[in-house]
């Protein structure tokens, strides 16, 4: 089975083609560029390197958030439009799970996180061991301070990993009370080859219902809901 995998959830962009879990071609870029401009040419290039036509793809896997709203929409719109028009099964994988999966062969608890601005993070807790990733605490949006307090109650070491280079590094050092490690360099960048292998055996989602998991309401909506409650 040939899989095309796409991740544009944050600054890194990664696209890959795999065949039966074997990576054939992958392009990963981690510099500040425009995903909308680069994604389709990258898909074309990755397919070309794998000597594969888009018509030979059997399944599409996309990183579906959380992350940058715009980045997510570019990746998910592209993936779902391809899947819809080619009548292909499509699968959506958590962008945080993908980030944790970089440490697939470690044994322990991983907290992948993305900077959600103003002291907030998108994060969740995952357990990795022997090549599998299991979710322990669901993906959510909260302040890093609250997240650290939550983790402090758990009594086991945590590995932090984030593509946002050294975001929150000092805050974790100052407040996290248990043993921890902070993954830097290369491994912290999500890879679409890994995304393909996580998604390949997952049941397909309904293509029209695919939408990013933003894990945060639009401010105007949150305010409106608040007003409804007061009235």
């Amino acid at each position: 089975m040939k899989v095309l995998a796409i991740d544009t959830s944050n600054q890194p962009m990664s696209v890959a083609v795999t065949e039966n879990m074997i990576l054939e071609s992958e392009l990963t870029v981690n510099v500040k560029r425009n995903h909308s401009l680069q994604l389709m040419p990258a898909i074309e290039q990755v397919l070309e390197h794998a000597s594969t036509s888009i018509k030979d793809i059997d399944k599409i896997v996309v990183a579906g958030g959380p992350g940058s709203y715009t980045g997510l929409r570019i990746g998910v719109t592209t993936a779902k439009s391809l899947a819809w028009s080619l009548d292909l099964p499509i699968v959506q994988v958590s962008s945080l799970k993908l980030t944790a999966a970089s440490l697939l062969y470690m044994d322990g608890y991983v907290s992948p996180f993305f900077d959600a601005r103003r002291g907030n993070v998108f994060t969740g807790l995952y357990k990795v061991s022997k090549g599998s990733v299991e979710q322990i605490i669901p993906d959510q949006n909260l302040s890093m301070q609250d997240w650290i307090s939550k983790l402090n109650e758990r009594e086991h070491p945590i590995t932090f990993i984030s593509p946002n280079a050294d975001a929150f590094k000092e805050e974790i050092a100052a407040q996290f009370q248990l043993d921890y490690q902070y993954i830097e360099h290369t491994l912290n960048i999500p890879r679409a080859g890994m995304l393909a292998s996580i998604g390949v055996n997952q049941d397909a989602d309904s293509v029209h219902l695919i939408a990013p998991n933003y894990h945060r309401l639009v401010e105007a909506e949150a305010k409106w809901l608040e007003q409804q409650k007061e009235e």
Binding site: I43, I74, T77
Partner: peptide, 18 residues
Amino acid sequence: VGALLVGVNAAKAIAFAH
């Protein structure tokens, strides 16, 4: 811009696919 991006990326995807 965010609204335009959805149309542009959908259009590119189906143009490429076919």
